[in-house]
Computed example of a mutant assay.
Amino acid sequence: MGSAWTQSFREELSVGKVKFSLSQPELLLQPQWSISPLAWLLYRLFMLLYTFIWCLYSALLFSSPKWLLFLSHIVYCSMAMYYLLALCNLVWAAIQVRNFYRNAAANQNEGSRVRGGSVGPFPLPPLLSAALRLQWCLHNLVSSFSVTVTLLYWMLVYPIEKHPLSTFNINMHVGNSVQALLDLVLSSTPIHLAHYVHLFLAACLYILFLLLYWLSGGTSLSRKPYIYKVLDFGRWPLVAAFSVIGFICIGLPLGHFLLLVPLKV
């Protein structure tokens, strides 16, 4: 057991795992359970509509572009983008596969070069291949960031800022992780430890944005010089620095690892 885990850990951290290699593109399109194609399509459609409606409600609720300063809102909007892309890719691939095999069957009937009733693997169009890689990237980012947002919000932000426990608040900071875990359980999309590299880069970009926003004199929705109290770079620079380090080196890796463990057990 120990040697198997060690070997698996080494494989997960290999350079090849960092890339979004489409050796098995069907994993990004199909569920990992015996779910009918129609049910899978309806699931993708429902999750897209559900998430989009909450994003629209969030935008109307705050009535300011500053609502996108919060990481939880950015992640949830990214989740809507993921569901939209996953649905489009699913429909696109289904149409491409049907047309491909229909044309192959017609060629067989006409005595073309296809022999023995086999048409070989479905040739993935370059644009669809790129869209699937983007879907995979969004899936990993959204899943890990959702769990991390939930953990950090209830451990650090909520005890300090005491936001009201509204339906909106619970959906953004609990429902986000439920949706991410549900998609992880139902879909066949692989997650690797090495994908933390992408999470690290995304986290650094967000922190850099917050820092530049603060330096330029930007304020929050309540006109305060910080987005989160723990990231008040002007008043508590050490607290902000340690919060950033904890977020990138502890919170985000923990959220990513919690997603990965059930897949490897």
Results as ranks from 00 to 15, higher is better:
Ser3Thr: 12
Ala4Cys: 06
Glu12Pro: 01
Ser14Asp: 11
Leu22His: 04
Pro25Gly: 07
Leu27Ser: 07
Leu28Ala: 08
Leu29Gln: 02
Ser36Phe: 08
Pro37Phe: 07
Leu48Cys: 09
Tyr50Asn: 06
Trp54Lys: 15
Tyr57Lys: 09
Ser58His: 03
Leu61Pro: 09
Phe62Tyr: 09
Ser64Thr: 08
Lys66Cys: 01
Leu68Gly: 08
Leu68His: 01
Leu71Ser: 06
Ser72Met: 11
Ile74Ser: 10
Cys77Tyr: 10
Leu84Ala: 14
Ile95Trp: 11
Phe100Arg: 02
Asn103Phe: 11
Glu110His: 01
Ser112Lys: 05
Val114Tyr: 10
Gly120Gln: 09
Pro123Leu: 03
Pro125Ser: 11
Pro126Tyr: 01
Pro126Cys: 02
Arg133Tyr: 09
Cys137His: 15
His139Pro: 03
His139Phe: 14
Asn140Pro: 07
Asn140Lys: 06
Ser143Lys: 10
Val147Phe: 00
Thr150Ile: 03
Leu151Arg: 01
Glu161Arg: 12
Glu161Thr: 15
Asn169Tyr: 07
Ile170Gly: 10
Val174Arg: 07
Ser177Arg: 13
Ala180Lys: 03
Leu181Lys: 11
Leu182Phe: 06
Asp183Pro: 10
Val185Lys: 07
Ser188Trp: 06
Thr189Gly: 10
Ala194His: 06
His198Pro: 03
Leu199Gln: 04
Ala202Glu: 06
Ile207His: 12
Leu208His: 10
Tyr213Ala: 04
Tyr213Thr: 04
Trp214Tyr: 02
Ser216Asn: 09
Lys229Met: 09
Lys229Ser: 07
Pro237Tyr: 00
Ala240Asp: 00
Ile250Gln: 00
Pro253Ile: 13
Pro253Val: 13
Gly255Val: 04
Phe257Asn: 09
Leu260Asp: 02
Val261Arg: 05
Val261Trp: 11
Val265Met: 12
Val265Gln: 06
